[in-house]
Amino acid sequence: MEPLTSRAQVVEKKKMNLWERMYLPAIVGGMAITLKHLFKKKVTVKYPEQKREFSKVWRGQHVLKRDDNGAERCTACGLCALACPAEAITMDAAERKPSEKNLYREEKYAARYEIDMLRCIFCGLCEDACPKEAIFLRDDKIVMSEFGRKPFVYGKDILVEPMDPTKRIDISARQKKTF
């Protein structure tokens, strides 16, 4: 059979001689290796205290963006739910009342918008599907663990970003798609 990689090696089973059967040289060699590793730089990090930097293409928890005036961008078109391969997104649409113009950008908005984080595979297709640039996957937030399944269904209270302009969530890196 053709080897799949250049690193393929033919191993043969041969009888060990006395020196090899003693194991002692091999054990001493192994102990030298462990001792060497004792003085090497650790490859692990102490996780909750120390965190690794996220990759630039990291896809974390979703955010529903507001526009510059603080109105929600999402128009409940349902394209994200359609694009979602895991069928994680559910929503109910509602019509905007004239008095709610400052809350919702389009005439139709999502009265309920839920993402089941247990179903979600963080593929980012919802982000690609959205015509209103309303949903993004943050590059700085992990979906945290919970004690049950219910709390994993994130509603608008968690997903929509705060109205306060100083607390807006920066997704410019993902918007640029420079990667």
Binding site: I27, I33, T34
Partner: peptide
Amino acid sequence: MWVRWTIPRFRYDQLMNLGWKI
């Protein structure tokens, strides 16, 4: 501990061989 880090589980027949015969 050093030995333990290096060979966490020595197979028992091999260990017996090592002890008695070597």
